[in-house]
Design a protein around this nucleic acid. Structure first.
Lengths: 114, 114
DNA sequence: TTAATATGTAACCTTAAGGTTACATATGAG
DNA sequence: CTCATATGTAACCTTAAGGTTACATATTAA
C-alpha cells in the first residue's frame, strides 16, 4: 500500500518461477548462505542462479551483503507480508464472496438454459 | 498442493502485471461482462487486452464462455485461494518466524562489527 | 442481403526472461 | 607471489511478454 506498484509486480513475477521459489526456500532455511551454497542445489549454471537471484533482489524478496569475497544472502519477509495483508483486506471478497459468486453464476446459467 | 506446479507459476506471472490485476478487478466487480466491456476501461488496443485475458485464462484466474457473438467473463477465486492456503501453511514461517530471523541477522551483524 | 457489432487470427515489432560459455576481478590461504 | 575460491561482467542464443495494425469470421438486427 505504501510501496510503489512496481514492487508488487516484481514480487509476483519473481515468485512466478519454481526455481526462484526454491531459491527463496533455500535462503529462508539457511540465512546468510552464499551464492555458491545456493548453486550446489541446482544443476543450472552459477550465472543462471545469479540471474534468478538478481530478480529476487529486485523484488526485495532477498537481500544480500558482501562479506569479504562472499555475498551473504537473506530472505526478506516484508514484500510477501505486504501482499498477504493486501489480499486479506482489499481482496477479501475473493474469499468472503466466493460462494455467493458461484451461486450467481449458476443462476445465470439456469436462466439461459431454461 | 493438488495442482501442477505450472499452475502456480502461471498465476503468479499473471498477477505480476498491473493491467492484468486491473482486469481481474473489473471482471470480479462485473461478472459476465464481455471483452469489449473490459476494453472500455483501457486505452490499450483490444488485442492487447485480449492477450492479457488469455494469460489470465491460462492461469485459470478468469474463465469464459461464449454466448452468441459475445464472450462472457468470470473471475475464478480457486487459484488465489490455493496460493492463500499455501502461504498460510507452507509459508507460515514467513510470518511466524519473521521477528526471530531479524534478531538473528542483527546478532550476526554485531558479531562482525564487534 | 447488408451493416454494425464482437470476437478471433496473422504478422510484425521491441524488450525482457532464462539460459549458456568465456573471461575478469577480488579475496583468502600458503 | 601464487593458487584456489567466490563473485562479477560480457556476449550470445532462444523463447515469451507486451504491444501494435490489418484482416477474417461470426452473430445480431434492419
Amino acid at each position: 500500500m505504501s510501496e510503489q506498484p512496481e514492487t508488487m509486480d516484481l514480487v509476483f513475477r519473481a515468485l512466478g518461477h519454481p526455481g526462484r521459489r526454491r531459491i527463496l526456500d533455500i535462503v529462508k532455511n539457511r540465512p546468510g548462505c552464499c551464492v555458491n551454497d545456493v548453486c550446489d542445489s541446482f544443476s543450472m549454471s552459477r550465472i543462471g542462479v545469479m540471474k534468478h537471484l538478481r530478480l529476487l533482489e529486485d523484488a526485495t524478496l532477498i537481500v544480500s551483503e558482501k562479506e569479504g569475497r562472499a555475498r551473504k544472502l537473506y530472505h526478506n519477509a516484508v514484500p510477501i507480508q505486504m501482499i498477504y495483508d493486501r489480499w486479506t483486506t482489499e481482496y477479501s471478497s475473493f474469499w468472503a464472496g466466493r460462494m455467493t459468486k458461484i451461486k450467481y453464476r449458476v443462476e445465470e446459467k439456469d436462466e439461459r438454459n431454461g
